[in-house]
Nucleic acid binder design. Structure first.
Length: 295
DNA sequence: TATCAGGGCGATC
DNA sequence: GATCGCCCTGAT
């Protein structure tokens, strides 16, 4: 309810942007807690609930300050430099041309972890349903304009419920076998712990995350890339796996391990950006049929 | 009614 | 270290 008061100010700010495309950034599948209302995106992150839209070269927003927006959308990242370090081949070139201005969002680490635990063997609408349910049950109401939403809970708000009550509750929200992952992880970590991983090397931070139940390579890489600034992390999910095999191995039989090691040395230190462009490209342009026909 | 999805895990070879 | 069956649930 404090959030309601805090967010009730309706003044709009704006910031000039270049090499940034809001729609691509929002719709590429990295972020789940948003809703589109007209040309505005209403976005949840931590205790923020803000709205944002893009004009020609300006972002217009309210509910968050300029510094937050800059940081959240990685507007400080020099896109030209980043893209110049991605190896240009037929596929990356097309992906970048199509989705130029897509940036990696800096999510709240705990919410990002929660999101990608929910994403296991799932799909975007269902992930969003799970997260919204989680927010409604455990979180707090927030409001901006006439739009109402709920913030996601901190880990201790889930942990304090106790396993006996929490796990069935989570299953009731549709989390299924992910319920025990979410509950156990919420017992083991908090935001401060996740923040502390920034101080580690990429392999160390990844190893720490993978100690958590439900966190394998893919989920760990997502959390590292989308919330902890490890822009070299290259999450390999089903889509990217199919894309990499098709684009770079021409259907030759290779193990998951070989795919993983290929992407980590081919795409370089901004591999995460390459991943996101290729990911969005393979989903929206090529689609499922392309790969099914291929294999 | 069976199968599969934007994985992880434990068992097995 | 590679492969497989299972895990919940909703969609086809």
């Amino acid at each position: 309810m404090q959030q309601t008061a805090r967010n009730s100010g309706n003044q709009t700010s704006s910031v000039k942007v270049r090499d940034f495309h809001l729609i691509h950034t929002m719709e590429c599948g990295q972020l789940f807690r948003y809703r589109r209302v007209g040309d505005w995106y209403y976005v949840h992150s931590g205790d923020k609930f803000f709205k944002i839209r893009q004009g020609e070269s300006r972002l217009e927003f309210s509910g968050a300050d300029k510094d937050f927006i800059r940081h959240f959308f990685s507007l400080d990242v020099p896109m030209k430099d980043v893209l110049s370090e991605i190896p240009l081949d037929r596929h990356t070139r097309r992906a970048i041309r199509l989705y130029y201005g897509l940036r990696i969002i800096r999510q709240d680490p705990w919410e990002c972890l929660l999101s990608y635990l929910c994403s296991i063997a799932s799909n975007i609408p269902k992930i969003q349903r799970c997260l919204d349910g989680l927010a409604r049950v455990f979180g707090e109401e927030v409001r901006l304009d006439e739009v109402k939403g709920y913030s996601l809970p901190e880990s201790n708000q889930i942990a304090s419920v106790g396993a006996r009550r929490a796990v069935p509750l989570l299953k009731g929200l549709g989390l299924g076998f992910r319920s025990k992952y979410v509950y156990e992880v919420s017992q083991r970590v908090d935001s401060a712990y996740l923040e502390s991983l920034r101080g580690l090397s990429y392999p160390e931070a990844k190893e720490k995350l993978m100690e958590l139940p439900g966190v394998g390579e893919k989920v760990a890489d997502c959390v590292l890339l989308f919330s902890l600034d490890f822009v070299g992390a290259f999450p390999v999910d089903r889509w990217i796996d199919r894309a990499i095999r098709t684009f770079y191995f021409k259907g030759k039989k290779v193990s998951p391990r070989e795919v993983q090691s290929f992407v980590s040395d081919y795409f370089g230190r901004y591999g995460g950006y390459a991943q996101q462009y290729l990911f969005h490209y393979s989903r929206t342009v090529l689609g499922k049929d392309f790969f099914q026909g291929k294999q």
